[in-house]
Amino acid sequence: MVVNCQLKRVYVNEKWCLGCHLCEYYCAFASTGEKDMARALKDIRINPRIRVEERNGISFAVSCRHCTEPLCVKGCITGALSKSGGIITVDRNRCIGCYTCILSCPYGAVSPSEDGAIQKCELCIKTHEGTPRCVSGCPNGAIVFEERGE
């Protein structure tokens, strides 16, 4: 599976982003492991790994770019962040919450999770196979999952 999708990335086209924020909710839902979104997210303030940035009528979603030379991985002092098969993942057991990665990510794509360890987009590989939920949940094709080369 990893071999198949290692070159596929989440790309965003702001031309079609409606700023509806559904990607954030599908992202938050994906990490709960629940079957029903209402049950999973009812009365919860979500903390998604993809965020819609908007100003002056322009909006687009931002999530991890899985950089070729990832500054977050370089800066990680415990080796909790690593890149394999083209995807940058976090080992939550090794993360000590120093947030060096958050400071060094040029895209602002890394954020603290509720329990102190950091969280970031891992292309949904830990929750389910196939297309990441933000992509399949986007109503206007503004977020795509495709191979474009580095």
């Binding site: 409606l18 700023g19 509806c20 924020h21 559904l22 909710y25 979104m37 209402a38 997210l41 009812k42 919860i44």
Partner: peptide, 13 residues
């Protein structure tokens, strides 16, 4: 209201 998660997509759209 049992199912509404207040994502506000209805309001935005």
């Amino acid at each position: 209201q049992e199912r509404c998660i207040v994502c506000r997509v209805c309001e935005r759209q």
